[in-house]
Amino acid sequence: MRPSDPFFYLFALLALGLARACVCSQHLLRATLYLAGVLFCGAAFYVILDAEFLAGIQLLVYIGGISVLLIFAIMLTRGPDLLKDRPSPLRRNLALALSLSFMGLCSFLVLRTDWPAALPAEPHENPVRDMGVRLLNPGEGGLLLPFEVISVLLLCVAIAAIYLARPGSGEERPLS
């Protein structure tokens, strides 16, 4: 047992409970709060996995960015009928069956696989710096191209979002 193992179980339980609450809560805003909790647990997982930088990014982007954005969107568009999102029993059962069978199938595969032993560790004096170097390295093993691509993607997304949400793009002409 490593010192981080109890934390794994602690945060795993927390994450699962919050995830369940998130998908089952009838109240969207609360669901968003639960989602933020799940994501926070994700950050904790990253810390457990020695990825502190990723944890920071997770907090910054998911909780600081995405959750806030979601809350904004819900606040801006709250329709009275969907504050209570209550799916029908049929729908619930069907979804339950599907997701449970998915989970069962995958668990079966996970459990019966012989996972290889860990390879020797690659020491890193400063992982954040190394990641930065990898990201901006155009050569072997470098991720400059994906990095640029994702930058362009983000730019495009920003433009698209502005265009879509521009006043007058939704109100005057209904989408149907």
Binding site: R91, L94, A95, L98, S101, F102, L105, L109
Partner: peptide, 17 residues
């Protein structure tokens, strides 16, 4: 939308099986 998602999921699982 969710109908499609269900079919996709079921199809994937059938493929895996």
């Amino acid at each position: 939308l969710q109908g499609y998602a269900s079919w996709m999921l079921a199809g994937t699982m059938a493929l895996v099986l």
